[in-house]
Design a binder for these strands. Structure first.
Length: 885
RNA sequence: GGGCGGUUAGCUCAGCUGGUUAGAGCAUCUGAUUUACAUUCAGAAGGCCGAGGGUUCGAUCCCUUCACCGCCCACCA
């Protein structure tokens, strides 16, 4: 007798097995020529903090696939790790410092970085610990961090290689500047949000002409202080006369030219544009085209500088008000119109970004994008669901150069040194020294007085190397055993917002440095939102902590509930986790029942070797149901349809196995075959459910299948076609229908559920009678019937009894009441009529010569088949109607 | 401005190549339960499948127009 508590105590079980799996090193992958590899690389979580629900979803999906593939016999590698997440992590540490009343400038660069490493050590460990709690079957020995020594070497090498190929360049451009973080941002890091702003119409007096103005419209009037031209469309008749003339920029009294440029849209605003080359990307381009001056009016912190004259020292928004006020006094403000437009915000601190002129490093993306586009177009990389393919292609086709330098301290420092020289070779020394290792001296003048570039690289400039840098590249290259075995990896699981940041860039890096795709499948999952549809976030305070759910409902419940809700975006509230908890408990209790009832007879017995001929109908049925479910589940997992897989499992285990099979055999536990089937189906089910709910299944596996070793390294159940018994399923359906119909009758007539009732089953064939006879005990028991008589003719008049029709079996329960037989008949008649009409249409089509000759042969054949089936169906229905008469 | 997705029961969603009576979970209601599980069981009620048009013998499903919601992208100042 094995004692199990009636409640699944997940806390103890979760703890036990996550420790066991790690202690026994069950997830370590090695190069194994006898097996195919299946590799998944974790999207490394940021070391900014603890894991949120999105991580829980992302990692559960990966774990399901990895555990499934492991059971299918692949050498599976799931590479774990964390990302240093440049700006994001620096921000959280700076916020921590702010609480102490300090800024990073109170520290030296080294001291500040030490704070960051301390943070990383703490949170990096927490994240790994949390992944283990979730049940993630990662190869923990390989845990990587994007700033590990080896990884850093990869980052520097890549920089050098691209630089030498001419794909990295440095230049002055307008970039997205966050005045709060005081760093450049990439285009992807500037989030555009619609803001209600104003369109200000400013008048610029024409030089030497009384009362002549050109009116320009702008959303950022303060930038007028940096204007160096006014532009109009060359075709715009209104302004033709002004082209080449000079206007006087108010407030600063700078004389600026009126230039003609095709870019200007005559229809927008006034058709005249103020040109601020240092503060707007379009104006910058125009400035280049027309050789204009670049006047930078702003300091890096968003405060106006000495170029702003009287406005020096004002914050940009403060200056906006002041400029407008002064222009208004000068009567140079024509009007203000409300205007909604998209404004970039820093993706980390949400400050409005400023288009800012500065010297930055860029990657030329065009050449890199080419093979990456081809790979997806040709299907070498597939997106699941496929609609994301278009999103990817669209971005790649319009790709722009990537600004990779950041003016922060946390990250990979740009591997570029400048010779501060001894004055001997000024010319040569202007050339930067680009090297993966710290250069000892200037190659030109030999000076050892070298200064490294102050900037660090965009965090994604390291992440994009994840698929191979994690394997020790470039010290290990394509020829290395590990890379040859595990690269390209198999599937990538990630969120839609990461497609541009990461997925696309990994594909480009894969081709550039490894000459091959980094992975073949990309699975894009939904976003976890709260019940109101808002994205879960710490700042909104609507986040549900996965650890809290694990504590209250268990890791299996968290995993199961998340996945079954994961079709598209997930709308999660706490109650949603009950389904997983209840299901885990159901599995627990079904196993408990079996353990209590089964002697040693079922142990060590393999379902596949069973002689089905000796089994009763419910047993054949449940075995068949299992294999049918197994096949569908396997197919669903292979197609990344995880929620579908879970629904199938849920329905099978709960509705078929527990509610029917275990109920039906309740009184027959002494039957050895019942024991064998119950335990056999449980054994296979535990395997099938393991990738989804690893803890409860591992625990029960060890309780029911002692000595076989850990469940996570067992084989995935083999599908057995011969055990799918369609006839048993059909027959059982009839019985289930019968029982269910009787139950309905009982409810309708308010018969005490405990009370057994007499019943007459009327059948039309001897075969059906024999079939009922065979399963009489079960029917009686399940439907709570007594004195069931089976006859081939109706012996009771319909109006004296409740009559139910199930297939060809008519069930008559003598009662003081009438069931409306006419209604039943009408229903079937309507059905028959519809089928007949369908048949008619079909036959019409089949007689159509054009259709028969022109349509593909398979289609015609299929239609013929359908026609035959329909005919049979119609005939059958007519018979049923006749039997009702 | 461009693109994508959604609209199915009170709520959250399935419904994968068009075909019996459109499903599930939660919530509601009725009843059961000394017998693995109240985190249980049996049952009920609840749907012109967003609106219009089209294709078809037949449309939740395909085409088209529209409405509303959401997301992504975009240098009209």
């Amino acid at each position: 007798m094995i004692e199990l508590s009636p409640r699944f105590d997940f806390n103890e079980v979760d703890e036990k097995w996550s420790k066991f799996w790690v202690d026994n090193n069950l997830f370590h992958a090695r190069v194994n020529p006898d097996k195919n590899s299946y590799t998944v690389l974790i999207p490394p979580p940021n070391v900014t903090g603890i894991l949120h629900m999105g991580h829980a979803l992302n990692n559960t999906l990966q774990d399901i696939m990895i555990r499934y593939k492991r059971m299918r016999g692949f050498e599976t590698l799931w590479m774990p790790g964390t990302d240093h997440a440049g700006i994001a992590t620096q921000n959280v540490v700076e916020r921590q410092l702010a609480k102490e009343g300090k800024t990073r400038h109170d520290f030296s660069r080294e001291e500040f970085l030490e704070r960051l490493w301390a943070w990383k050590r703490e949170y990096g460990d927490t994240i790994i610990h949390q992944l283990k709690k979730l049940g993630a079957s990662c190869d923990w020995e390989r845990t990587r961090f994007t700033m590990d020594d080896g990884y850093s070497l990869a980052v520097r090498s890549v920089f050098v290689r691209l630089y030498e190929k001419g794909l990295i360049y440095q230049g002055e451009y307008i970039i997205n500047w966050c005045p709060r973080c005081q760093t450049a941002l990439s285009d992807e890091e500037a989030e555009h949000r619609d803001l209600q702003g104003n369109l200000y119409y400013l008048r610029y007096p024409v030089k030497n002409e009384e009362n002549a103005f050109i009116t320009v419209a702008t959303t950022r009037p303060e930038t007028m202080l940096g204007d160096t031209a006014v532009a109009v469309n060359p075709k715009d008749k209104r302004y033709k006369a002004y082209i080449g003339k000079t206007v006087v920029l108010p407030l600063v009294n700078r004389e600026i030219r009126v230039v003609a440029d095709e870019f200007v849209d005559a229809k927008f605003g006034t058709g005249a544009v103020k040109v601020t080359p240092a503060h707007d990307p379009n104006d910058f381009a125009m400035g280049r085209r027309h050789g204009l001056d670049f006047v930078n009016i702003m300091r890096p912190d968003g405060v106006l500088n000495e170029q702003a004259g009287d406005f020096e020292g004002m914050d940009r928004f403060e200056a906006r008000e002041a400029v407008i006020e002064e222009l208004s006094e000068l009567k140079l403000l024509e009007k203000i119109e409300p205007h909604t437009h998209a404004v970039g915000h820093c993706y980390r601190c949400h400050t409005v970004v400023e288009p800012y002129l500065s010297r930055q490093w860029f990657v030329r993306m065009g050449p890199l994008a080419k093979p990456a586009l081809e790979a997806v177009r040709k299907g070498k990389i597939k997106f699941y669901p496929s609609r994301w393919t278009k999103v990817y292609l669209n971005w790649m086709e319009n790709i722009r150069d990537w600004c990779i330098s950041r003016q922060i301290w946390w990250g990979h420092r740009v591997p570029v040194w400048y010779c501060a020289g001894d004055g001997q070779c000024k010319l040569a020394c202007k050339e930067p020294i680009v090297s993966p290792t710290v250069p000892e001296k200037c190659p030109h003048c030999g000076s050892t007085n070298l200064k490294q570039d102050e900037d660090v690289l965009d965090t994604w400039f390291s992440s994009w190397l994840w698929p191979f840098a994690t394997f020790g590249w470039p010290l290990e290259d394509k020829g290395s055993k590990e890379l040859a075995y595990f690269y390209p990896t198999s599937s990538l699981f990630t969120a839609p917002e990461i497609i541009f940041f990461w997925v696309a860039r990994m594909i480009m890096a894969g081709f550039e440095f490894m000459g091959d795709v980094p992975f073949s499948d990309v699975y894009i999952h939904g976003t976890v939102r709260d019940a109101k549809g808002r994205k879960m976030s710490k700042s909104l305070g609507n986040a549900i902590d996965p650890l809290e759910i694990i504590r209250e409902y268990g890791a299996d419940a968290l995993r199961f509930s998340l996945i079954i809700n994961s079709g598209q975006d997930l709308f999660i509230s706490k109650e949603k986790f009950e389904i997983g908890r209840n299901f885990a408990n159901k599995i627990w209790n079904a196993s408990r029942l079996i353990l209590m009832r089964v002697s040693s007879a079922g142990a060590g017995f393999d379902l596949e070797k069973i002689n089905t001929k000796a089994l009763d109908l419910p047993s054949r049925w449940i075995i068949s149901r299992f294999y049918a479910t197994l096949e569908k589940v396997t197919g669903a997992v292979e197609r990344y349809r995880f929620s579908e897989a879970e629904s199938l499992i849920y329905e099978f285990f709960w509705n078929n196995f527990c509610d029917w099979y275990l109920e039906v055999v309740k009184d027959r536990w002494t039957d050895e075959n019942v024991q064998r089937v119950a335990l056999g189906v449980l054994e296979k089910s535990l395997k099938m459910m393991h990738p989804f709910m690893p803890f409860v299944t591992e625990e029960l596996w060890n309780r029911t299948q002692e000595g076989k070793g850990s469940l996570c390294i067992q084989g995935w159940p083999a599908f057995s076609r011969k055990l799918v018994d369609k006839e048993a399923e059909r027959n059982m359906d009839v019985l289930l229908g019968l029982v269910s119909a009787v139950r309905t009758v009982r409810t309708q007539w308010n018969i005490n559920p405990g009370q057994t009732v007499p019943c007459q089953l009327i059948v039309r064939t001897k075969k059906a009678a024999a079939f009922l006879d065979e399963n009489l005990a079960m029917i009686k028991n399940a439907a709570r019937l007594e004195t069931v008589t089976i006859t081939e003719k109706a012996a009771v008049k319909a109006r004296d009894a409740a009559t139910v029709l199930v297939g060809e079996i008519k069930c008559v329960i003598p009662l003081s009441g009438i069931i409306d037989v006419d209604k039943e008949k009408k229903k079937i008649l309507a059905q028959a009529l519809e089928q007949e009409r369908a048949l008619e249409g079909l036959q019409k089509r089949l007689q159509n010569k054009e259709f028969v000759t022109k349509a593909p042969a398979e289609v015609v054949a299929k239609e013929k088949e359908r026609s035959v089936a329909l005919q049979a169906k119609v005939r059958e229905l007519k018979q049923v109607i006749a039997s009702l008469e």
